[in-house]
Amino acid sequence: MTWTAPHVVRADEPFVAGERAMLEGFLDRQRATLLHKCAGLTAAQLAERPLAPSNLSLLGLVRHLAEVERTWFRRRFADQPVPSLHGTPDRPEAAFDDAGSARAADDLAALVAEQAAAREAADGMPLDAIFVSPRWGPMCLRWAFVHMHGEYARHNGHADILRERVDGAVGT
Rank of each mutant, 00 (worst) to 15 (best):
100 G>E: 06
88 T>V: 00
61 L>Q: 08
155 H>W: 10
104 A>C: 05
146 V>Q: 14
113 A>R: 11
56 L>M: 14
79 D>S: 15
106 D>T: 11
156 N>G: 11
120 E>S: 10
140 C>T: 06
144 A>V: 15
139 M>V: 10
118 A>Q: 03
110 A>S: 12
78 A>L: 00
107 D>L: 00
103 R>M: 13
164 E>P: 10
59 L>S: 08
106 D>E: 15
57 S>C: 08
121 A>Q: 07
92 P>Q: 00
96 F>S: 02
104 A>I: 01
110 A>C: 13
139 M>C: 12
111 L>K: 09
102 A>R: 13
50 P>W: 09
114 E>Q: 15
75 R>H: 12
143 W>D: 00
83 P>L: 04
74 R>G: 12
150 G>C: 10
135 R>P: 04
166 V>D: 03
53 P>F: 04
147 H>C: 03
128 D>N: 12
113 A>V: 04
62 V>P: 07
166 V>R: 05
89 P>D: 04
147 H>T: 03
101 S>L: 01
105 A>H: 10
127 L>Q: 02
123 D>C: 06
101 S>C: 03
74 R>E: 05
137 G>N: 09
103 R>K: 13
139 M>R: 14
103 R>Q: 12
101 S>A: 15
85 L>F: 08
134 P>R: 10
160 D>N: 13
78 A>C: 05
151 E>D: 14
134 P>E: 03
96 F>E: 03
83 P>N: 00
76 R>S: 13
112 V>L: 14
69 E>Y: 15
140 C>R: 02
157 G>I: 04
125 M>Y: 05
138 P>D: 06
166 V>W: 13
71 T>N: 08
154 R>L: 08
117 A>H: 03
117 A>M: 13
152 Y>I: 00
141 L>D: 03
134 P>C: 00
151 E>V: 10
100 G>Q: 07
96 F>V: 02
114 E>A: 12
134 P>S: 03
65 L>P: 07
66 A>F: 09
131 F>C: 09
125 M>T: 15
86 H>S: 09
71 T>D: 06
146 V>E: 07
81 P>I: 06
126 P>V: 01
132 V>N: 10
83 P>T: 02
